[in-house]
Simulated scan of single mutants.
Amino acid sequence: MSPPRALLFCCLAAISIAAPSACGSNDAENGGDGAVGSRDDIGGVVSAGSGGTPPFVSSGGGGGGAVEEDFNIPAPTGAPDPYTRFAHLCGEGCTPGGDPTECSSSGSADSSSSTGGPSTQTLHCQLTLVDGKATPGCGPVGRFGAGGPCHRGSDCAFGLGCAALDGEGGVCRQYCCGNVESCAPGTYCDERPMAESVVEGSDPVPIPVCVPAVNCELLNDSACPAGLTCTIVREDGTTSCVTPGVGRADEACPCAPGFVCSMLTNQCKQLCRVDGGAQDCGTNAKCQGGSAVYPAGFGVCVSTS
């Protein structure tokens, strides 16, 4: 027998609107509060399709033809996906550091093979400076790997861009135009000035690249350069010194010193120590840790009222 129509509607609404708390949430595995969530936590897996297309459900019984019914549940709305929060810096077109088949081999007009014909040159999607903007396009793969010297993206190997250093020139870094968690262990995705924009003397143009993490101690900024704060920068608990924002508890990221950005809600949560020795959370709140999201001994403040 098919379940009542009202029950189906209730279950679908719960999945589409409150995925983290309904029908098998990953929240327990991520430490309850979910300071950093999985892709399922964002709700993209079970939400309605693009353009507000409502989900459909089969109400047909076994052995009979399935009947699709439109329950007209609207797609959930909210903040942009925090896992792709730097995508807007990469322009429109191919994705730097993305699918290697986006740019195929092409004949090189300025070189020849041993047989006298044009040679082939491996291309990849990279960002170049066009009219003061970072613009994606297919260009030749350079010879320098991650950490190598560069003046522009064409100096770097596949999937790498050229980020400016404090002095002249730059360093090859992995692009993170797509999922910010695609960075190699020990690094995290952040904005850095494109080397070309600095070398050519124009306004610095930010690009998203994977940069080395400092692994600093939370709630202790003494190891960070002046003006930076230590916070969690990856969902595995990696920490580093970053430029702080102004967001405080339950406010939008980026966050002020002493707070961490929740990937689940894109809101700031107050950091705290779980040893009970310091009253970081104040009255009517406690420090909740016990998750791989937070380094040992740390958590976030949750209300007890």
Rank of each mutant, 00 (worst) to 15 (best):
G161I: 05
C176P: 02
V214R: 12
D190N: 12
R192F: 11
G167E: 10
G169P: 01
E200S: 13
A223H: 11
S222Y: 11
N179I: 09
V205Q: 09
Q174H: 11
S154R: 10
C189K: 03
S182Q: 08
T187E: 07
P208R: 00
G201F: 13
N179Q: 09
G186T: 06
I207H: 01
N220L: 10
A184I: 15
C176Q: 01
G169Q: 10
D166F: 11
R173M: 12
A213H: 13
R192D: 07
L160S: 00
R192N: 07
A223P: 08
T187M: 13
V211N: 00
R173K: 13
E181C: 05
Y175L: 07
M194G: 03
N179L: 09
P185H: 13
G201C: 09
Q174M: 11
G169S: 11
D166Q: 14
P208K: 02
G159K: 01
L165G: 14
Y175N: 00
G159L: 00
G161V: 04
R173P: 05
D166R: 13
A213I: 04
M194V: 13
E191H: 11
P193V: 09
N215C: 01
G186F: 04
R192P: 08
V214Q: 14
G201W: 09
P212Q: 06
S202T: 15
M194R: 04
A223N: 14
G178Q: 06
G161M: 02
G170C: 07
A163C: 08
S182T: 15
G186D: 02
V180D: 15
S222N: 13
C177A: 14
P193G: 10
D203G: 15
C216F: 05
N220M: 11
P204R: 14
D155C: 07
A223V: 09
A223W: 11
R192C: 06
S154Q: 15
Y188T: 02
C156Q: 00
A184Y: 15
C177G: 06
V180I: 11
